[in-house]
Nucleic acid binder design. Structure first.
Lengths: 224, 224
DNA sequence: GTACTTTTTCTTACACGTACGGAAATCTGT
DNA sequence: ACAGATTTCCGTACGTGTAAGAAAAAGTAC
């Protein structure tokens, strides 16, 4: 792996391709043909090299995708004006991250990352943690609260994106409907009651509602 | 795809392998060698057939994994005694599902499923929705509440599992530490303040805390 | 029995990610 | 100029998921 800050002139064979060039080309390929069109061979061809040359700048394809997501986040997550009220600031910051990521369709393959990704997202993390602290949470609890918000956000995006992908692929979606159509009202009364509306209810975008509920619950802070 | 309920005797060449046999064998392979050891070729060999024969019982590998997860859920999710108190019942039901899934290490490859999977999980969904209704939520809100709980739960599992996998793989974990070590306290004061404890805080298991906060927030129900 | 239909199985082939090892291109020291 | 050292690049090879279509094995109709 090449160190980012080579102090002087480096010995060894000079590099003909750079990580930046790789990422730029990969971004273009994804923009044109989706993440499915991004193959190491294609990428190598477009960059004027060979597949195995890329592996000296990138550990594997997963790292390349993470790098791509970082790149995407860095250029779409612009710090916006957030509300002055602390609680609203938490909601708005989380919502901004959510919206940016949700607009990125190939995200699922990557979004299983631990923390939030690129340094450009850290500012939003700061806003969330700080907002929670200003609302009276101790720092530890605020960090845990941020984690909970991130779990909720990542889960929402991944679940919805996968559902959309499956729906586009084929008819697996109809399977759920079958399950819900044949519910025994004696055993699962609530689900039977909601069965007809289940698909519609599930399709609704309730991210912000759930987020507000989570934040409210975090700030109400029962327990010692 | 063979229809599950062939009414009489079927014409055509008789099947030598069944979906059940495939899933059983796949489960054994995963139990022995992890999900990484499960390849279509290996599976075909162990089932005494050829790779392409399997594709007549299973759409693709992803569906096979979903089937495996369903199978796993069906045999580990046993209906247990849940608390009588509605709110506690919601927490306990969600916790039971969470614990069962979190114990399944290969889950990440699959858990991006839309709803909860097998019919054996529906009972838990019922408990959650019913508990929320009994706490006073209208049915629509209860279903949305269940969705929020599922987002949070799935997100927690996926994020943690991926983090664990990355940590096992290599040294990418140290990258985050570098980022947090070089924070500018002027720009990101809270993160800088928490930077040293960040890894420890992140490692803590706060699933239930977040879940309770979410449930509390859902039940407090501000907004109209 | 022979022809046709239907269902399952198998053969072949392709593009993929990437491990391995060696070749090429540069710098440093003599 | 020459000999390492070091870094980057690349040719080859393996195992993967699976698309396409041929082949096999059963039933039915005549």
């Amino acid at each position: 792996m090449p160190q980012p800050s080579a102090p002087r002139k480096a010995p060894g064979r000079p590099a003909r391709i750079s990580r930046e060039e790789i990422i730029d080309t990969a971004r273009r390929i994804v923009a044109e043909g989706g993440v499915k069109g991004l193959t190491m061979r294609r990428l190598a061809a477009e960059v004027g090299s060979t597949p195995m040359a890329i592996y000296h700048h990138v550990r594997d394809k997963e790292e390349l995708l993470v790098l791509l997501l970082d790149d995407y986040a860095a250029r779409t997550l612009r710090r916006s004006r957030l509300p002055a009220d602390s609680r609203e600031r938490v909601v708005a910051a989380a919502g901004a991250v959510h919206d940016a990521l949700a607009a990125c369709p190939w995200i699922v393959e990557v979004l299983t990352a631990d923390d939030l990704m690129s340094t450009s997202a850290l500012w939003f993390v700061e806003q969330i943690v700080d907002g929670l602290v200003e609302c009276g949470l101790p720092l530890d609890r605020a960090v845990h609260g941020y984690r909970a918000i991130w779990y909720y956000t990542a889960g929402e995006i991944v679940v919805r994106a996968t559902a959309a992908r499956r729906r586009a692929d084929d008819d697996r979606a109809t399977y759920r409907e079958h399950v819900f159509a044949d519910l025994d009202p004696a055993e699962l009364p609530r689900l039977a009651q909601a069965s007809e509306r289940w698909a519609a209810l599930t399709a609704e975008d309730t991210y912000e509602d759930g987020l507000r509920a989570l934040v409210d619950g975090l700030l109400a802070g029962r327990r010692g």
